[in-house]
Computed example of a mutant assay.
Amino acid sequence: MRDGKIVASAQSIVRMFPEIRNINPGKNGMLQRAQRTLAVALVRADGGIDLDPTWRGKTPEQRAKNVAWAVSALERLRADRKNDPSVDTDLGEALAKVSGRKEEARGLLQGLADRDLMATPQGYAALGRLQHEAGNEAARDAAVKRCSTMAKDSSICDVPTSQGGQS
């Protein structure tokens, strides 16, 4: 996953844990990590990963179902790992993909940014997009700048500008 191999990461997890969609990991660290990795992969692919017959991502409905599962998995993990900035960052990134939960995502991610606790450049990129949608150009630019300092690949940090281009 760290090398940007999102689909390969997701495929590995589904091969190792074919029932992962329905597993409650409880306190099992390995299952929690597997669900978290799969959730983040699905979010970063906008739900558009075809893994096996139970994980399809071709239609908008299938992609939305995959992202909804990812949010649910990350919310369960957050309940077990309160005040964990890396889990909060992943959850904020996921919530940013869900219509009706973008303000919640923006609040969560901005809180992490304000305390300098954002765990990933993707979290800053999601915050930048959310701030752009909210019309807050200064906050958008600050998030993009922080993203750029963290990212190995600056394309992660592409966020629309007010003129309709990418920054």
Rank of each mutant, 00 (worst) to 15 (best):
D116I: 03
P25Y: 02
P85Q: 08
T59H: 07
K102M: 15
D46Q: 11
A105K: 07
D90E: 11
Q122E: 15
A8Q: 15
A151G: 12
Q131H: 01
S72N: 15
K145Y: 03
R76I: 01
L117H: 10
P85A: 04
I6K: 10
K145R: 14
A73H: 07
I23M: 14
Q32M: 13
R78P: 02
Y124P: 04
R129A: 07
A143Y: 03
R15A: 10
K102P: 14
Q32Y: 02
R78C: 00
A64P: 05
D90P: 00
G128M: 13
L127D: 08
Q166F: 03
G165I: 00
L51C: 03
K102A: 12
I13W: 13
K5M: 12
V14A: 06
Q11L: 12
G29Y: 01
S167E: 11
R146K: 15
E61F: 06
G4H: 07
E133T: 13
L91T: 02
D116C: 10
A8K: 13
L127M: 12
D88Y: 00
D90K: 00
R129G: 08
A39G: 08
G29R: 12
K152T: 14
A143N: 05
T120R: 09
M1C: 12
T149L: 08
R81V: 03
M118Y: 01
T120V: 06
A45I: 04
A119Q: 02
R2V: 10
G164N: 04
